[in-house]
Simulated scan of single mutants.
Amino acid sequence: MNRLLASYANGMDRVSVFIGQSCSVLFFACIAVSAIEVVMRYGFDRPTVWSTELAMTLCASAWVLAVGYVTERNRHISITMVETLVSPTVWRVFRLIQMLIASGAILILSLALWEPAVKAVTRMEHSGTALNSIQPAYLKALIVAGCALYLLQLLANIIRWFQRTEGELDGGH
């Protein structure tokens, strides 16, 4: 059973790292879209109707999808002062408590977001902007997917905690 759980944790780590590193392309695309908008607006006096919405969607997508990577690397923002005040054993217990609380919170968030995401995708909600893209439907569904990635990676981290196979954990600073 331990080997099966370790295999899951290793596999989930690889998925999270792949997705997280792949998201860097979305940030570069956002930079390109923003640069095109600047040239079109100030160079040709022809601003686009799509660039702001697209840049926002690209950045939001990267941010939501990278949550598993951030969790796998233990790079969330944390209060590191507490770590310096308590023993390594107590800090290890605090990390488990944090992962369990995060798992519960994300599970509740996922359940709360499920129905609105299904409605948004079923009705194919549009943004109502000049571009009138399907951004609301896309992002609502993507947030649910991001929650799933976060939960799956938290489970992998909890498995590693119990098996004492965590890598270097130096907080979110």
Rank of each mutant, 00 (worst) to 15 (best):
N2E: 08
L4Q: 13
L5A: 15
L5P: 07
A6T: 06
A6C: 06
Y8L: 07
A9W: 00
N10R: 14
V15M: 12
S16R: 03
Q21Y: 06
C23E: 04
C23S: 05
S24W: 14
A29N: 07
C30P: 07
V33E: 00
V33M: 04
S34H: 12
E37T: 03
M40C: 08
R41E: 03
Y42N: 02
G43Y: 07
G43C: 10
F44E: 07
D45P: 00
D45Q: 08
R46F: 07
R46Q: 09
P47R: 12
V49R: 09
W50H: 09
E53P: 02
C59A: 11
S61W: 01
W63C: 09
A66K: 01
Y69M: 03
R73E: 10
R73P: 02
N74A: 03
H76E: 04
H76S: 02
I77A: 02
S78T: 12
T80K: 11
L85A: 12
L85W: 06
V86G: 04
V86T: 06
V86E: 04
S87A: 05
P88D: 09
T89W: 12
V90Y: 05
V93D: 09
F94R: 05
L96F: 06
L96P: 03
M99N: 13
A102S: 04
G104S: 00
G104I: 00
A105L: 09
L107W: 07
I108N: 03
L109M: 12
L111A: 11
L113F: 13
L113M: 15
L113H: 11
L113I: 13
K119D: 13
A120Y: 11
R123W: 14
M124P: 02
E125Y: 15
H126P: 13
G128V: 12
A130G: 12
S133T: 15
Q135P: 14
Q135H: 15
L139E: 04
L139F: 09
K140Y: 06
A141E: 00
L142S: 08
V144K: 02
A145K: 03
A148S: 13
Y150H: 03
Q153G: 12
L154M: 04
L155T: 09
L155K: 05
A156P: 01
A156D: 02
I158F: 01
I159K: 00
R160F: 00
W161E: 01
W161R: 01
W161P: 01
Q163R: 14
T165W: 06
L169A: 07
D170Q: 14
G171S: 02
H173Y: 05
